[in-house]
């Protein structure tokens, strides 16, 4: 039920190499949570999408889930 698990789930559905999806969670200075997403190099484009549309949609959905859990979350693709 965590926001991190939701991001992992969505991304693993989008990529060719779900085993290489890695989300690291850490706190930023401003008391919000940063979810750092790593995928296989070949999958980078698959989580960003044309014009960043997929990354944007992922952020929108993940932020909605975070809000429900009373968190503030930002997603960084590295």
């Amino acid at each position: 039920m965590s926001t991190k698990a939701l991001l992992e789930y969505l991304v693993s559905q989008l990529v060719d190499n779900p085993d290489e999806v890695e989300v690291t969670e850490f706190e930023s200075k401003k008391q919000d949570t940063i979810l750092e997403l790593r995928v296989a190099e070949a999958d980078t484009g698959k989580v960003i999408g044309k014009g960043g549309r997929i990354a944007q949609a992922l952020r929108t959905v993940v932020k909605a889930a975070a809000l429900k859990n009373g968190e503030r979350v930002s997603v960084e693709i590295v």
Binding site: Q13, L14, I54, Q56, A57, L58, T60, V61, K68
Partner: peptide, 23 residues
């Protein structure tokens, strides 16, 4: 929470489902 402001979350969700379905 799944709808969001003016349907923004719902539209993002539908977009992702569409991409997953296509792939």
């Amino acid at each position: 929470v799944l709808i969001g402001r003016r349907g923004s979350t719902l539209n993002a969700l539908q977009f992702l489902i569409g991409v997953i379905n296509a792939r």
